[in-house]
Amino acid sequence: MAPRFFCGLMGPQGATQSLDAAGIDRAMVRIAHEIHEKNPGRLADLVLIGIPKRGDTLARRIAAVLARDHAVVAPVGVLDITMYRDDIGSRASLPKPSDLPGSIDGKTIVLVDDVLYTGRSVRAAMDALIDFGRPKAIQLAVLVDRGHRELPIRADYVGKNIPTAPGANVKVELKEDDGAEQVLVEEGNG
């Protein structure tokens, strides 16, 4: 096996914290605010759909802020995109159940993911979503946009833009999933 696949693990790591717990919290508040701003008259049909594993956690947090700050009750769903990926087997590829809150026909969907990178996950998510019904609109919210898009995809709501080197690794940790609460950028040396 070529060792270069593992040099990121083997080399000394320079991991920089790009967002702390307060920063993530502020991002959630701002995204909720922007969703509220951007969708006047459609708030009743708003559905937040997270892409596991951390996107669904973020979707639930945004929904909570929408309810708290804007009195908007947006149902939250989980969308598994494993069967829609174009890279089966190359990473954790076990399908998990999707859980959508009822029909998505005519709804305004905000897809929520942790990191926007190549855009392939979002492409898969849109394909998956369309197999479930015909939403009125699909918007995209991400905690981090790290650049290096490979598809013509752009986020509607971004918590933080973090320009990164192609070899770098952006690690989002949320207390529900990981115990810790931060965004780290690990510089790759590949």
Partner: peptide
């Protein structure tokens, strides 16, 4: 088994 319950009963895997 959920795929059978989708409106479109197939996935592109």
């Amino acid at each position: 088994s959920d795929v059978a319950k989708h409106p479109i009963k197939k996935v592109p895997a």
